[in-house]
Each structure stands twice: as C-alpha cells, then as structure tokens.
Write a protein that binds this DNA or RNA. Structure first.
Lengths: 251, 251
DNA sequence: GGAAAAAGTTGATCTAGGTCAAGAAACGCG
DNA sequence: CGCGTTTCTTGACCTAGATCAACTTTTTCC
C-alpha cells in the first residue's frame, strides 16, 4: 500500500496514549540504551514519546529529511536502505528491540538512509531534541548512547570489510554461518529475510544470489525456501574463513 | 623499514616529556573533541599521554589487538586498512588533526582496522582507560566524543553507499569533486594520496584506476602525476551526480 | 480455492573490472 | 648523479557478476 503516507498513519493511529506507553515501558526500559539511567530522566523521555503501529512496507523515514525522532523498534522489522541515481540498496535490517538512526539524532543532521517497515511494526518515536537534552543531564544515558553508537560504527566497518575483501559467494557463506550462530548454532536454521533483500544487503542481484547458493552445494549447504541446512560445518567454514573481526556481531 | 618495531620506537623516542607535551597542548586542546572540556579534566588526560614521532610505513596498530590507546594524529598521515585471507584494503586515510580508533577505545573492544603511518608522523597516545574515565566525569567531553563518533559512523555509511550504489568510474569522479572542494574549489588541485592507495580506498585495482582516469577524459578531466585539472565542471558533475548524502564530508 | 502478482530460478549473453605481463615514469638513496 | 626500486600505465586476456528473458514456485487476496 504505497499510497498510505506517514501523515495519514499518524492521524489514523493517533498519538500513543499513556496506557499504551505504560504497557510498553517495561520492554523499552530494559533496552541497553535506557537500562542504567535515572527514572526521572526516563520519564522525561517518555513524556514526549509517541508509540505507533505501522503496516508493512510503509516508508518511515526518507533520506535527506531532518532527523526529528529517534526511532525504537519494539516489534516487527525495519529495512534501512539508500538510493542514488535510480539505484537502491539495502543497508541493514533492524530487529527488535533496538533503536535506529541514532547518529542523525545525535548530530541533528539529515538522515543518510531511508527506512521502511517490512512487516507490521510497533515503533516508539522519541523527539530528537529530548534525547539530546537528556543526554546532557544523565551520564549513564550518555555512556549508553556512546556505546550503542560505537557498536553501530563497528558494524558498518565490518560490513565494509565484508564488501571489499570478499567475493559474493564468500559473503553469502559467511552470512549463513552468522545466521546459524544467531539461530542457536544447529545444522538447520531459517532465513528471516527475503532472498532478494538478502541479495541487496550482501551487494548482489537476486539472480546471482540463486547461483551463489548453488555454488555452495559442494560445501554441504542446502537451501529450500527459507530453510537452510549445513551438512558439513567444517567444510563450509574452511571455505568461508569467518573472522571475528568481520563476522562477530557482538564485539 | 619494516624491521623497526613499535616497541623499538618507543624505546628510541622515549616517553613524551612535559616540555614536548606543553608545546603540543595548544594544538591538541583546540581539537573539537577537547574544545569545551574542563581544564582539570584535560590535564588529567594529558598526564597519562605519550607523544611520539614515527617514521613512514610503521604499523601503529594491528587489527585484533586490544585497544589500549586513543590515537590523535598531530602531523603526518595515517592509513587505516584491513586484511582478510591474504587480501588487503584501505579503509580510510587520517589527516591532522584528528583522532582515530575512537570506537574501539569507547567499547574497550579489539581494533577492527590496522593503522600505519604514510609519512613521518607525530602522534599523541591517550590511554583508553583514562578516556573512558574522563568521559564519565565531563559531560562536555562526553558530548564531543558522541558527536565525533556519530560523525565517523556517518562517514562509513556514506562510504558504503558510494561502494554499493556507484560504479568505480562514478566513485572516482565523485572523489575528484570532493577533493576539489576540499582544496578550495578551483579547477586545478592536487591528489594527496598515492594512486594505488586511492584505488584501494575506492575499491578497485591500480590498473583499473588508470583506466578509470582515462575514461573521465571525455568529461574534461586531466590528470598528470598528482595534478588534476577539471576543464568542464558542469560536464563532470552531470556525469558524477554528487549527492550531499554521500559526498558532503561535513554533515 | 484459484486467479493474479510477486519471488525465485535458470539459461544465454554481456560487461565491468580483475589478472597477468611488460614497458615507462617517478622516486629514493648511496 | 645514476642505479635500483617502486609506482604507474598500457595491452591482452579472463572471470565474477550483471542483465535480459523465459519459466517455475510461492504468496496474496478476493
């Protein structure tokens, strides 16, 4: 439903009322960014907050726009993407519960990426000015923001290394290994992303992704639909050569 | 001189003494990161600091090592690069006066990139633990760190967009336009980077860089040695289609 | 449940960019 | 200054991956 604008949505769903926020508070409060902060400051942040449900495929943010809100994804999933000269690429996918476009908020600079919901998503919107204000008065929050930001930075750096140092098949192989770990490490797991989006995220075309999957078959990788099975873990790892300095998403 | 290790250097040059630091203090003090902070806190940081001169091509940092120091480049230039599976790529080049590997320091996590001097360089080393300590006690410093980090993050995001959305010739064209602006905007300017390093930074081979330069000739770009002349600004810009969301290095 | 739309796959072809090799130019150093 | 090393360039060739088109499978939605 591309005709449904953000404004329309806000009117439809209205400003998040206190009860809605209350029920969400626990979840949000326990996020890393807010964990250690003062209650008063947290309340201060939440007073100006909106909570909204969005349908799938709604463009939440358009790159270039001023960054009025820090977004926090409570449920659903959001794709960050960028465009130039008629081309488009997936920059990353956001899963609950985490914030996005923190850097734009902090710098009070225009968004560098657009964002759209992939599924029905619940999102908390914190006015950027409030975030900056509380940052200055709560050292604990400041510490958390800086840590989150550093984490984001390191993720992008890892992604750049992945892009510049590996071929597309190597990127796919390592993506599968990362996904496997995230899913518990068993020999069978599920892709939570559409293949064409995955292709874009990994910097290739959907067609080439299909072929890349096929070319991993000799290493014991089977993919049917969104189900992946890794028959020979060692063999795949010998090929993929995963490195903690690229593939470990925690450090 | 690849035989000369960092340790040897430290022995040779010794710990920066107070006089050396004093002479540097002004320059360092005026960096964005330190500008607004308390004098006492600044002194606290500088008490534990080392200042050192390094010859060209010395590896200052190896990716994967623990991040013991925040580095600040006072003069010279430093290349940040990464390796995987025998391949190497330039991630970015650092010019004075700015800090590098801030994110690793903040998170107390291993370096994701290696660093080497390109020329004779003067570098201030601040123990990471001191930086984190002062961060917690000086809100102004915290604000500056977060701003610097956000800036770094946004730079890497722009770089990813450049890599994923543009061809190598388009990347080169836009790089030239950025370099031109940085150099005052005149039709003639100078490349401050070796072409092979530039090639690596832009994600291509030196051979392909040569050919990319040639293919920009029809758009009025002339390159001889490190001198670049842009004869038809409009023509080049029509081809390069620079975007502030990728190419503006300030926001 | 079934038509329409979207996602995924496959094959044929093309092309951007990598690799290899050799020569030219620039640089560093005794 | 001149010799040796490195960088840069050019040409020939190759390959990873894109594009295009046709087809199959899956999903969506009335």
């Amino acid at each position: 439903m591309p005709g449904l604008s953000l404004d329309k949505c806000q009117l439809q769903l209205g400003r998040g009322n206190y009860t809605m926020l209350e029920s969400e508070n626990g979840r949000i409060r326990s996020l890393d960014v807010f964990a250690g902060m003062d209650d008063a400051h947290f309340d201060r942040l939440m007073r100006g907050a909106y909570v909204q449900n969005f349908p799938p495929m709604i463009e939440l943010i358009t790159e270039g726009d001023p960054s009025d809100f820090l977004h926090i994804l409570v449920s659903g999933s959001v794709e960050l993407f960028s465009t130039w000269n008629g081309r488009e690429t997936t920059m990353s996918t956001v899963w609950p519960a985490s914030s996005f476009i923190l850097a734009a908020t902090v710098k009070d600079a225009p968004y560098l990426m657009s964002a759209r919901t992939l599924e029905k998503s619940r999102i908390v919107l914190l006015p950027s000015s409030d975030v900056r204000e509380v940052f200055d008065s709560d050292p604990c929050f400041a510490r958390a923001i800086v840590s989150e930001l550093a984490q984001c930075y390191r993720s992008v750096v890892k992604n750049t290394k992945d892009l510049k140092l590996r071929t597309s098949v190597e990127r796919l192989a390592n993506y599968l290994l990362r996904q496997q770990r995230r899913d518990g490490g068993g020999p069978e797991f599920i892709l939570h992303t559409e293949k064409r989006r995955l292709a874009s995220a990994l910097g290739m075309t959907p067609e080439n992704m299909s072929r890349a999957i096929k070319s991993l078959k000799p290493y014991g990788v089977g993919v049917t639909g969104n189900k992946v099975s890794i028959k020979d873990q060692d063999d795949l790892e010998r090929f993929a050569k995963p490195s903690p300095l690229i593939d470990d998403f925690r450090t």
